[in-house]
Design a protein around this nucleic acid. Structure first.
Lengths: 224, 224, 224, 224
DNA sequence: GATGAATGAGGGTTCATTCAT
DNA sequence: GATGAATGAACCCTCATTCAT
């Protein structure tokens, strides 16, 4: 019946403050002392809850992961069709960054490429969520909605890579645009591709199917 | 007529060593002293060439940028058709990472998200190269090769985001696979999309065009 | 009529644990928190019984002092002759270390040279016990059993110094030997000296009596 | 031709200051920062010369060991007779403490019982010097000067134990007495023992030879 | 231009001690 | 009396940067 304990609130306060300061000044430039001060706890208290500074960093996604687990799966299950689910996934994924730019900063700039983070349970939770996208794509292939020739891992990289990319640009440029507006164009492009179907294969001197074959045979031709 | 001066060689040696050590241990964990030792120069000499540690970091892409400027544009100009150029671009871009994983590490993990780097000439050179991809896409739209509805910025984000994504995964997983093999599937997917054209729009209870429209009107419906 | 109270048992448990941990890791490296944990009390409880960490350290000899008071004097009183008592004293003194190596460690390495400890009642108790050895020696001189030329303080330093010395070596070497076997040789040597009485004073070019006199007159001749 | 370099002087200055401060306040209470300040170097400089605080502590005996190596052996070789050498050794050993009470404090209170110190070259040097005393005693036994029944290790423990003991007492009591005056009584006692040769064995009800035998057979009789 | 010893500010972390419950 | 979470002062150590040689 009772809500979170005082200790839990304290811990969340620390994580929230750390997220903000890490994002603002960078993980390296941020000091534990400053986080303590702004979270209105002592430095010692931080070390009661987290074994060290990096461990604190690694706990930042926890909240979001939990929240997404609860709501994300719920919403996706209500949607029918792989294409629809895929678009919804992109919305949910992007929206998390859009609504929590500090989390986006930390996730994309400090955690994504951190080998130590990949050893933590926090990373596992995120992976679980990513795997969901793969499942959606596989579902679409099986149902015939998607081409059978596509590779789920590649499509996942396309979608998430694109969103990560535009999110980083958005963050770096000062968050002035509406990040959410990039979701549909990304998904539209992934859905239908960029080639103009009204133009025949022979419209170009070197159509791309042939080029593809050519390049494949000499993949390192551009090397010195 | 004569080659690079002794000082220039020294400078390159420093950059090469820095690239390796920054990539191996991380920029923060790497020390100037260690770089000096391994480059067989004194710490003071490093500061003769670079104003500080971060400045040294920012000079790492220089080499690659110059090399790419020379060869990249040259090769791309020989290729006809936007689709072909686009694929070639992806090859060149990925190959640089594949052949220089230390550079890939630094570029993707330490420079991409560094606001200070975005103020340097080094970033400008990279941007110039990226803009080339945009131009290729625009060229494809104009020539009718690509759909007129696509947005070049989005397509660029898709391609480069996907490559960055698979490259980071490849780096983190120990560079065991052949990164180059992911290029074609990525470009293929971008070219033709993932939807199965043999299945009609009405094949699914909720086709994606309708869903798209629906989601667009209530983009934040999933928020609490 | 009833045994020790719960509080007293608690206090003893704390002292016992502290003795073990102080000895194992060193007083400085041992933490109050660890002692509390292993003694299964809270840190606060330790501070109910002892004003601070050093005060806890200073209470460690208490037990042994009390026990020795009870049994030591009793046994010594049953023995006749100063030489016999002296040997018995050495046995009792060494045995305490032998049976309680953790106490030996603390006593010899952390208390012996601690100026603050010398202000405590605990130190007084130990001193009382040491004075007993002086009394035995004085008794031997008076009874004619010992030479009248010896100085009780010096003999006490010899005996206790030797035992302390071999005990520290024993502790440092991993307590592999039987410490008790060193007691008799020490006392034998103190009793009869090391000079060979069968060799006359003039057997050596420079007999020690003369050397002694010589050195005494120029005690600092070897200084620069 | 030139004297010690500036760096060597600096290093010695650090060691000298550390010796004084460690002795004054205790190793634990002394701070590296304070040592740096008083030695007029930066903290960083201390860590250029010594890997950490304990390593600095372990370098304190170095000077004395070197000096003793040079002068100690030289003087001892000029003296004839084991008894004379033994007394001379005791003088030299004690004098080092007497002339350098800070070193005595560190040696007896912080190094003697430090297991880590026993792994250092510094400890080896000291051991070499101690072994010299054993050799002198063995020499005396072989020459017939000393009893053949004595054990060199025990005699060494007696002499050095006694000197250590009186030195610690002297230090703790404020260095008010003349420590050197204890050397002769110690050596005299060791030489001739404490038993009065003019009193026959039967003078006491229980002479010590018999007691010795009795105790030997029941060495643990005092245990509960 | 090159060196590398010296600097010293600053950071992460520990832990004895306190006090509200 | 007992608890143990919270405190925060203090310390060891690192390392980017400087500058006399």
């Amino acid at each position: 019946m009772s809500g979170p304990t005082k200790a839990e609130l304290r811990k969340e306060k620390i994580i929230d403050t750390a997220r903000r300061i890490f994002a603002e000044k960078g993980v390296h430039a941020a000091t534990v002392s400053e986080i303590a001060q702004e979270a209105k706890v002592s430095e010692g208290t931080i070390y009661e809850h987290f074994s060290n500074k990096e461990n604190l960093l690694f706990h930042i996604p926890e909240d979001f992961t939990k929240r997404r687990q609860k709501t994300g799966h719920y919403h996706l299950n209500l949607i029918q069709g792989a294409a629809n689910k895929l678009r919804a996934f992109a919305y949910i994924y992007t929206e998390l960054f859009y609504e929590n730019p500090d989390y986006a900063t930390i996730s994309l700039l400090y955690l994504k490429g951190n080998p130590n983070f990949r050893q933590t349970p926090g990373y596992q939770s995120i992976q679980d969520w990513f795997r969901h996208l793969t499942e959606i794509i596989e579902e679409g292939i099986e149902s015939g909605e998607f081409r059978t020739t596509i590779q789920p891992y590649i499509i996942r990289a396309l979608i998430m890579g694109a969103i990560d990319q535009v999110t980083v640009n958005w963050l770096m440029a000062g968050k002035k645009t509406n990040l959410m507006e990039t979701v549909d164009p990304i998904i539209d492009a992934v859905m239908e591709g960029i080639l103009n179907p009204e133009v025949g294969e022979d419209a170009h001197w070197s159509n791309w199917h042939r080029t593809k074959a050519r390049l494949r045979n000499k993949p390192t031709q551009d090397n010195e």
